[in-house]
Design a protein around this nucleic acid. Structure first.
Length: 276
DNA sequence: ATTGAATCCTGGTCGC
DNA sequence: TGCGACCAGGATTCAA
């Protein structure tokens, strides 16, 4: 599942490969990927040139020279592919942009959970879903005080709270498990029950982990591949995610997998104990 | 206001 | 070998 580091990696790859390109044709094979009127989506992007690509948390923001911005969320398995021939796309490709350089930029999504939406440039941050996002790691808005305040009013588990994009944005199932392990916090610990030390440790771990993952080009799990077709390497640095039954790198005990808030959760029961 | 459940999807896995 | 049942999982919607 692409999280902030993976989306940032995709953003950088696409910035190199498609900025400056003009959309000459659009083929939409599965309409439900598009939020809003499909015909308007198509009409507004035909002839438009990509000027730059931004990002907010896990949302990609394709800015066009005609004043429109395409907001794209990859959800579970969405990814972009750049190919020389349309025939190279399989049945999971749902939207194909023909580019002025003759290449094709496609959106592929096996589970069809991803969404694309066109909004006037500058209004994307006002979208309900984006406006409600909490501060994201590695930005001035993400402070230890913001984290403390956000967690203090949540009684549900810290794992569920980290997945909730309203407190901190950009984390998903992989990095939530990893930062909790780094911080020696039990995933089921109520968010408002963290000690001051745990809060400080968690705050730092989130920044550090996200930065390291971005530097590594993200984590490649299952279907995730960035726009260049390259794989990120951060999976080699994961300590608990998908390491069920293996030895905890810190204490040697067995990594457990449980379900928290409906999500598979990996942790070490020995060095991530519940607070008493 | 917060919280939990249901929802969307398909490939993979399991049991027979 | 095949087939039905079940599951994962981010964000949204709805209900409590």
């Amino acid at each position: 599942m692409p999280e902030l580091p993976e989306v940032e990696t995709v953003r950088r790859g696409l910035t190199k490969s498609v900025v400056g390109q003009t959309i000459t044709e659009i083929e939409i094979r599965y309409f439900k990927i598009i939020v809003g009127n499909v015909q308007e989506f198509r009409d507004r992007l035909l002839g438009a040139t990509i000027t730059d690509i931004g990002r907010r948390a896990k949302y990609l923001l394709f800015h066009f020279d005609n004043g429109w911005t395409m907001v794209s969320h990859l959800r579970m398995e969405g990814r972009y592919q750049l190919r020389a021939e349309k025939s190279e796309f399989d049945k999971h490709v749902h939207v194909i942009f023909s580019l002025s350089n003759g290449q094709y930029l496609a959106y592929r999504d096996v589970r069809k959970f991803g969404k694309m939406q066109l909004v006037p440039r500058g209004s994307e941050l006002n979208l309900k879903s984006i406006a409600a996002l909490g501060p994201e790691p590695l930005t001035p808005e993400y402070t230890s005080e913001a984290l403390r305040a956000g967690l203090s009013e949540r009684r549900k588990s810290i794992k569920a709270t980290l997945l909730d994009q309203h407190v901190v944005s950009g984390l998903g199932n992989i990095y939530a498990d990893e930062v909790l392990w780094q911080s020696r916090i039990n995933p089921q610990e109520p968010a408002n029950n963290l000690s001051a030390t745990q809060l400080t440790t968690l705050y730092q771990a989130i920044n550090t982990e996200i930065k390291r993952a971005i530097d590594a080009g993200g984590t490649t799990v299952h279907s995730y591949v960035n726009a260049d077709g390259q794989k990120g390497t951060f999976q080699g640095q994961l300590q608990v995610y998908q390491h069920t039954g293996e030895a905890c790198p810190r204490c040697g005990n067995s990594i457990a997998k449980i379900k928290v808030a409906g999500r598979g959760t990996h942790y070490c029961p020995v060095c991530q104990p519940l607070n008493s």
